[in-house]
Design a protein around this nucleic acid. Structure first.
Lengths: 161, 161
DNA sequence: GCATTATTGTACCATTTGGAACAACTTGAA
DNA sequence: TTCAAGTTGTTCCAAATGGTACAATAATGC
């Protein structure tokens, strides 16, 4: 175990990478914390969307029509969080809501052109960020990592129904 | 793009896995969201620690002596969050604080045997969870993934100094 | 030595978050 | 048909989070 000599920095993490009892989970978490959440901060600052709002936008940009409940189920976030995001995005004009004629409880949501344009800007930013994060890997390594992550993620997705 | 026919579920994510503009970042985020954060919820429920408190415990279980500021730098969390966790963990007896004789501003923190015992229990739980998440991969795939994640994570860690 | 600047830990506050309960509506069974 | 149970969207509330500012102490420059 490292003994204290001088100021600890973020770099000291490298020793934990090997000492930790659950190295893979830790590395995944580390990448997510170091990359994804600062990214959400940037999205909030530069694009004015909080996380729940961007999740909603991303869902609607990949599905044609969804209800708020669908978004909740797909994204795994609670209904009230999604509901708040829906109202905010309606006010901003990034999505449109149509009451369902057949079911008076629910309303169908669609993304507007403005919403799609916003999502494209944010997606481009996220992609750039992804490239930066994985720039240490070769093309072949990138491909391998991508496949392994997909395999693991799909397995997880299949487990919690 | 999928058109609406019936209820969307969490499983619909599998289509997004390929459609998304930043597939690797998305998969990493997905694994972190599906695995790590529910895990934090479990840690809170079963062990009574919030995330900041567990981060503190994990840091102190891998370094001999740290100040609150060290923990903040290593973990990347703000000082006030760490400070709150320190007081809570002191009250619970999971760590000990000694005022620094040389620097009146700071105090050195150490984990207590109780804290170490708690961390071992939580670490065992996290390890089990990790195994469950990666169970779809073969031993060889696990090893490859582990190496690639380490390479990417260390590169990221080296970038933000 | 003295004044300015930097650092540590803390307090305050606004924001985000999600659990629980609720009303409106639909579905299913008797 | 009618009533119980389930679903959708919303409101309310408590908890966690992190930015900002602050007091105390240390380090630096003159």
């Amino acid at each position: 175990m490292p003994r204290r000599k001088e100021k600890r920095t973020h770099q000291d993490l490298s020793t934990i990478f090997d000492m930790i009892e659950y190295p893979d989970a830790f590395r995944i978490t580390y990448l997510a914390n170091a990359v994804v959440f600062p990214t959400y901060d940037t999205i909030k600052k530069d694009f004015g969307l909080i996380r729940a709002e961007y999740v909603l936008l991303a869902c609607l940009s990949h599905y044609d029509v969804l209800t708020a409940q669908d978004v909740s189920r797909i994204s795994g976030r609670p209904r009230n969080t999604v509901g708040r995001a829906v109202h905010r995005m309606l006010d901003e004009g990034y999505l449109a809501r149509t009451p369902d004629a057949k079911d008076g409880r629910q309303a169908t949501l669609r993304i507007t052109p403005e919403g799609r344009a916003l999502h494209e800007k944010i997606a481009a930013y996220l992609k750039e960020r992804q490239e930066n994060v994985l720039s240490a890997l070769s093309a072949k390594e990138r491909h391998t990592l991508s496949q392994l992550l997909k395999k693991a993620a799909l397995d997880v997705a299949s487990k919690d129904s």
